[in-house]
Structures are given as C-alpha cells and as structure tokens.
Simulated assay, not measured.
Amino acid sequence: MHVILIAGGWSDERDVSLSGARKIRSALDELGHDVTFFDPADDFRNLLSIAKGADFAFINLHGTPGEDGLIQAVLDKAGCPYQGAGPAASYLALNKAASKEVFEANGINTPEWQLITPTQGRETPLELSLPVFVKPDKGGSSLGMSLVKRAEDFPAALDKVFAMCQSALVETFIPGVELTCGILGNEALPLIMITPRVGSDFFDYENKYAADGAEEICPAPVDEGLVRTIQEQMLVAHAALGLTGYSRGDFIATPDGETYLLEVNTLPGMTPTSLLPRAAAHVGYSFTELIAELIRLGLEGRG
C-alpha cells in the first residue's frame, strides 16, 4: 500500500512526534509499504490532494493539529482511511473538561475540576481545595502543568497556561499510584505503573522523555481486582468518547482502592518504549506487528 506517515506539526510536542515517526517509518518499511512522509508544518495546503492518492494515512501527531481532529477531518474529505479516532471523538477527548463531563455522565470517577478561561483571567478564585494541578485544557506531555500547593502560587500557574493560549483545567490532587491502561481494538491491555523519579512531584515532561525518567512497570504489580476495574472503566470511557482502534487512559488509584480517570489520549506515543507499545508487547505484539494491527483496524473501520 501507499501509506502517508503524518508527523511533526506545529505543536509544542513536535519533537516527540518526529521521534516516534522514525520508528514507525522503519516498521512500515519492514511491512513492505510504499511510504511518503508528510509534515503538516511544511506543506499543509497539499494534504488533501496527497491524501487522495494514498491508500492509508498513519498519523503520529501530538497536540494540535492531530489530536484535535483537524487532520482526520481532511483525510475523511479525501476518502483516505487512517488509524484511531475520527474528528469529533478526537476533539472531545483532547478537551479535558469536555471529556471529564463524559466520564462523569458514564459513572467514571474523575478528580474534581474547574475550567478557567483567559477571559475570566488570573484573578478567578480557586473553587477547589489545595493542592491542585493546573494544566492546559488541551495538550499533552504534561507541558504547561503546575502542582500548586499554596494559594499565592495559583495566579502564576494560570499565567503559565494562558501564555500557551489555552484555557486552564484545574484539578484536585489525588494522592495515589498512577496507572495507565491502553485499548487495542476492543480489548484492554495490561496496566503499567508509573513511578516518577525521586524529587519529582508528578509525571512531568522530563519524567516522560528523559533517559533517567520515571520507572514504568508492566504489568503493574497491583491487585487483579484493581486491574479489572480500571480495564472495565477504560473500555467504557473509550466507547463513551466514540473512540476506535486504540487509545490510552491515565488513572490514579488511591491507597483505599478508589480509582480516578484523569484523561484519555487518542494518539498515544509510538516508540517501542512508549507506554501502549510496551503493554501490547506484553500480550505478544512486536512493534511492527502493532503497526500492522493498527492499520488493519483503521482499514476495517474506514476502508
């Protein structure tokens, strides 16, 4: 097949996208596909025409464009199938406040939250008890995130988000273990436990991508009942958001066994050491086999 590999883009997560694309390109070559690399940051105006001549598009974008559904909408217009969620589901999942409303409507715990817009401004009073996380309402890789423990630090945390031209999602800090759960097709993958490196307050950008970052244990050494609970909740969230193909959700499990879904990622990291590929490897998928399966699922849903 002629496959367009779409990566790069103009978000703050561009470098992460390009890093994953190199591994995906190798897998696509190994599978025998004719691959054209496409970076929307360089040639967006030609995406529609290029997509019309392709058999499939493999999207490896993070942030916007990509996770906001824009690229998927153009590909739909071109009649070019791709892996993962469609435009509406992508945008819904990317918007943390909107997705939290979906979680709550479907009986899934999520930390108490407050959305603050730049129009409301930095003087907006905090409605939640400290400590709280303050993060961009749309975005990933923990960029722009702050853990606020003192009221006097709250306005500066809002400024940090507003400087990124984002609304701010304020979320109650829930102490516990961070666990991530991937979905592949209609199956929940094994959980991965994430332990930030010593001295870190949370799973920030450095923990995710530095060589000496967080410890990630797969399968997570937790009770089987907890594993089943999180997997079931992730399957419900995946369906409620209208996602297809694959996704990955981040959870907190408290010491007393309560679980909270933080957010869902529709275009998970795709290097061999990324979280979803690691979980897929535990159930028998090599990285190349995982890429092949994502293509199969995309063709099955949109071919």
Rank of each mutant, 00 (worst) to 15 (best):
L5V: 10
A7L: 08
W10A: 10
W10G: 14
E13A: 11
R14H: 15
V16E: 06
K23M: 07
R25P: 10
A27Y: 00
A27E: 00
G32T: 04
H33C: 08
D34C: 08
D34K: 11
F37Q: 06
D39Y: 04
D39I: 06
D42G: 05
D43T: 07
R45T: 12
L47G: 07
I50F: 07
A51L: 09
F56A: 00
A57K: 04
A57N: 11
N60V: 13
H62P: 03
H62K: 15
G63V: 09
E67Y: 09
K77N: 06
A78F: 06
Y82R: 07
A85L: 09
P87T: 13
A88Q: 15
S90G: 14
S90R: 07
L94H: 02
K96T: 01
F103S: 07
F103A: 01
F103L: 03
G107N: 07
T110Y: 05
W113P: 00
I116F: 09
T117M: 13
P118M: 09
R122H: 14
E123G: 09
E123K: 06
T124W: 14
E127I: 14
L128Y: 12
L130P: 07
K135A: 01
K138V: 08
G139A: 04
G140M: 06
S141V: 05
S142Y: 05
V148Q: 12
R150Y: 15
A151L: 12
D153S: 12
D159Q: 14
F162M: 15
F162D: 13
A163L: 12
M164Y: 15
C165A: 15
Q166K: 02
A168Q: 09
V170A: 02
T172Q: 14
L179K: 00
T180N: 05
T180W: 02
G182K: 00
I183Y: 06
I183C: 03
L184M: 04
N186H: 14
L189K: 01
L191A: 04
I192M: 08
M193R: 13
I194A: 10
G199E: 12
S200N: 10
Y205S: 08
N207E: 13
Y209Q: 11
A211H: 10
D212V: 15
D212C: 09
V222S: 01
D223E: 07
V236H: 11
A237L: 01
A239S: 08
A239D: 10
A239T: 10
A240Q: 06
L241E: 00
G245K: 08
Y246D: 02
R248K: 01
G249Y: 02
F251N: 01
P255A: 09
P255S: 15
T259A: 00
T259P: 01
L261A: 01
M270R: 10
P272C: 07
P272Y: 02
S274D: 04
L275C: 04
P277C: 11
R278Q: 10
A279L: 05
A279Y: 03
A280C: 00
S286I: 01
S286T: 03
E289M: 03
L290T: 02
E293T: 03
E293R: 06
L294C: 04
L297M: 08
R302Q: 13
